Simulated scan of single mutants.
Amino acid sequence: MIITPQELEQYRAELFDHAAALDALRVIEDCDGDLEDAAIALAIRSGQEPDTNDRWIEGLAKRWRHVLCHADLQESLEDGLSGAVVDAISASTEIPAKLVTPVALYVLKSGVQNFCQPLAEKV
């Protein structure tokens, strides 16, 4: 999953007052927009030990799907990435601050509805 330079600029403008989010965006940029590579680098910086290089961010996001797809947060995510979304994810999960932005971007790029569909089918 690739985040384009234009998307990075847009997210920087949205998250100008969130230091951890801006740091995550810098790492994503350093990884040529590759969200997976950036997430693994950020995970290591956060003291995590990713057990695989393939689809690690997907697994992390899925572990928190029950929170990310809660009605209020899902609705906020559907509106796009913002400081309020970053704050809500940080407050509602135990995802390290450096990884909140890549997880949110993963959900957005996957399509919020598509990401939340498996949970909706179980409820």
Rank of each mutant, 00 (worst) to 15 (best):
N53D: 14
A21I: 04
V123R: 14
I89G: 04
S82A: 06
C69D: 04
E78D: 10
E9N: 15
T93L: 04
L108S: 08
A20D: 07
L42K: 05
I95G: 01
L73W: 07
Q6D: 15
T52E: 09
E36N: 05
V100C: 03
R55Y: 12
I44L: 10
A104F: 04
L25W: 08
E9H: 13
S46F: 10
V86I: 15
T4G: 07
L68Q: 02
E49C: 10
T4W: 05
K122H: 10
Q10G: 02
I2H: 12
L108A: 02
P102F: 06
D72K: 15
K109P: 03
A24H: 03
T93R: 03
E9S: 15
E36M: 00
I3V: 15
Q6T: 15
D23M: 09
E75R: 13
C116H: 06
V86N: 02
H66R: 13
P102E: 09
V67S: 12
P102W: 02
A19V: 11
A97D: 11
Q6G: 04
L105M: 08
A13M: 15
D51Y: 12
A39D: 00
Y11D: 08
L22F: 05
G111I: 08
R12Y: 06
A41I: 00
A20Q: 13
H70T: 13
A84G: 11
A97Q: 10
I89A: 01
L42H: 06
A24V: 00
G80V: 08
I89K: 07
V67Q: 11
Q48W: 11
E94Q: 11
V123L: 13
K98S: 10
E78A: 10
S76T: 00
G111V: 11
L99S: 02
Q6C: 08
D87I: 05
D72E: 14
E94M: 06
G33L: 03
W56Y: 14
R12Q: 10
L68F: 03
Q6K: 15
V103D: 03
D23Q: 13
G111A: 09
T101D: 04
Q10K: 15
K98C: 07
V112Y: 05
L35R: 02
K109F: 07
A61G: 02
L73S: 01
A41E: 12
R12L: 04
D23W: 12
G59V: 09
E75M: 14
D79W: 11
G83V: 00
Q48A: 09
E14F: 09
I40F: 05
I3P: 03
E121S: 12
C69E: 02
L77P: 01
A13D: 12
L42R: 07
A13V: 12
Q74E: 15
V86T: 08
L15N: 00
E78V: 05
R63D: 11
A19C: 09
D32T: 09
G59T: 11
G33Q: 06
T93G: 03
R55Q: 13
F16R: 15
P96W: 04
N114E: 14
A84D: 14
E49L: 11
S92L: 09
A21Q: 07
L15D: 01
K109A: 08
E58R: 10
H66W: 11
V123P: 05
E29A: 05
V85I: 09
E36G: 00
G47D: 01
I40T: 07
R45M: 14
G111D: 06
V107P: 05
G83P: 03
S90Q: 13
